[in-house]
Write a protein that binds this DNA or RNA. Structure first.
Lengths: 346, 346
DNA sequence: GTGAAAGCGCTAACAA
DNA sequence: TTGTTAGCGCTTTCAC
């Protein structure tokens, strides 16, 4: 890198006794054919010198770096990667991109934060494209999307599609369908008093799941009781408080549907503290299917989100977008199905 | 990026009626002084054209990209970012580097995996430096460090220092001291039968904490009983099994020290399942001080690891290393203190 | 089939 | 004080 003089393709060319162009053709398998014999000479020289091309020089020349940005746009950027969603998606993106010889540059950002720094990055030419995880649809998010549009950097949204007018491709999952199915399951089990623990309602996902819950009630003719809907946070304390409150109702719930698995753990904890058994006294269903869901006793009945597949699809769409030169390929909105997983808590 | 022609410093120079060099001097505040008047003209042209420099071109020229790699070298790279440690460190690194106008490129890697791809990256000139999180000290890790050394890319290790012969700077924390203190605390509370739930013993940290536990016993003259040491996994099921087993001993533990907070949750769960109260019947202490530690009831007594500070220090050391041109500045081994936090479980 | 050379956008040494 | 220009290392058009 430093100190040592860098080996360039010129060194390789000299040693192999060919032109620099030839070296390039060999390395890239084109765009011009090369004789096997020259090929061999070049390869040997490369090995001998331990030559490694400079991405910078190549990038400058071809205007492409094979680096993709992951923009995690969330309320608390300091917690961004400790969140199950972002961590799982980041992992999935990284793996998929690695298999395509691409790298991932992470860029956490607070919702509402100044967009200037990100714009500098996007306009710097460092990134071939970005995937941005969206969690809501406020004006701040619109502003972000607006800015990205202006930079002309290929972009795919994840989890929440941006406003349609931006025309970005997006891959999300069937949040409402999952909530509908989970609730329907509980109804089918004979439950008529079903509590719903909302997550932080600033998140679109929390609202969509609530909508699915409500739609299921209506669909099956079960009365909606707002006393059975509670919470506005992803924190354990909030879930416990909600449970405590609900169970004091004259007609307490016989089942509880929580907007996330981590919420469910607290729900169960509080239920047990009150001496109630899960699922015998109160059935519980979660959402997410986090890793620990199968580890708990009993294992969680929940809704599986295909986060890994989401990351993979996002990568595929993005790479596609980048390759179709006039990247005006129609925006694709993919909504992956979720899967209700019946395990031990309901 | 594409489609639109890129605005270059030449455009700016023309519009401002100055030389391209002048543009560079203004943008970089040097290395030559510029008259305020010209400065103003250039700045205006930049704004007018909405000019953004190309990192690629700049990088090629100055051999510096302001991109740092984060190599997460662990057993299961597919789980890498869902781990509390990596996620927290990544966040900390990213934030610190952002404040220094640097970017982070993530590179998860399985222990023992082929090093070829990483070498290509390191030799590509894309990265100014790397911080690598180490969790053990096997030959595989040595091989990794060997390779990094050969590439001459500035490197700082995190959590575990590499073998001294590589001479890398490292920032870790006082694992053994923390375990010693936690155990000593329990002894001071009058406990003489203290169980220890090991994590996955392939991790150096699991072994070091065990050593701290043992040292504390010896130091305070408490008998060591190997029947009180159990486990070889970070999974909840393992912790529960250990607790179940220990509590059946003729002389069961009155306190349990677990190698991680997540383990503690399972310990408590199992204890409660057996109808025992925490901390009245059995005191419990964890390690890590994860976010949920304060959210549980009762809140966890645990050992706080300054992961955020570790990330920051690593960044500072690395940036320092990069800037001291002849980066042969002596390796610095920093061991940050941990903090025993007495809360509700012991 | 192969080589020479232009140029990607920038910085900094050299001139003036 | 400011302008000119030679590269950084690579790809690819153009000429042979």
């Amino acid at each position: 890198m430093r100190s040592k003089k860098r080996i360039t393709h010129l060194d390789v060319a000299k040693l192999a006794g060919v032109s620099t162009a030839a070296v390039s053709y060999v390395i890239n398998n084109g765009p011009r054919p090369t004789s096997p014999e020259m090929r061999e000479r070049v390869m040997r020289a490369i090995r001998e010198l331990d030559y490694h091309p400079s991405v910078l020089a190549r990038g400058l020349r071809v205007q492409q770096t094979n680096i993709i940005g992951f923009i995690a746009y969330d309320y608390l950027s300091t917690k961004v990667f400790t969140s199950f969603y972002n961590a799982t998606i980041l992992t999935s993106l990284t793996m998929r991109l690695k298999s395509l010889s691409h790298y991932v540059l992470v860029y956490p950002m607070d919702i509402g934060q100044d967009l200037g720094d990100l714009e500098i990055l996007l306009r710097s030419g460092l990134l071939d494209g970005v995937v941005v995880r969206l969690v809501e649809d406020s004006p701040a998010t619109d502003a972000l999307l607006e800015m990205i549009t202006a930079t002309c950097v290929p972009c795919v949204c994840i989890e929440q599609p941006g406003a349609p007018r931006f025309g970005f491709s997006a891959v999300s999952y069937d949040d409402q369908g999952g909530a509908f199915e989970a609730t329907s399951y509980l109804i089918a089990q004979g439950h008529r008093r079903i509590g719903y623990i909302c997550g932080d309602m600033r998140y679109l996902t929390a609202r969509t799941r609530l909508a699915g819950y409500q739609r299921a009630l209506v669909h099956h003719g079960v009365a909606y009781d707002e006393k059975l809907v509670c919470g506005n946070s992803w924190l354990p304390s909030a879930a416990r408080a909600c449970v405590a409150q609900m169970m004091e109702l004259d007609s307490p719930p016989t089942a509880i549907f929580a907007a996330s698995d981590s919420l469910v753990f607290s729900v169960i904890e509080e239920l047990r503290r009150q001496g109630r058994r899960v699922p015998e006294d109160v059935a519980v269903v979660g959402f997410d299917d986090i890793e620990l869901a199968t580890e708990s006793i009993p294992p969680l009945t929940t809704v599986h989100i295909p986060l890994v597949e989401i990351g993979q699809r996002a990568v595929d769409l993005l790479i596609d977008l980048i390759q179709t030169e006039d990247h005006i390929s129609a925006a694709r909105l993919e909504v992956l199905p979720v899967e209700f997983v019946q395990r031990g808590t309901a």
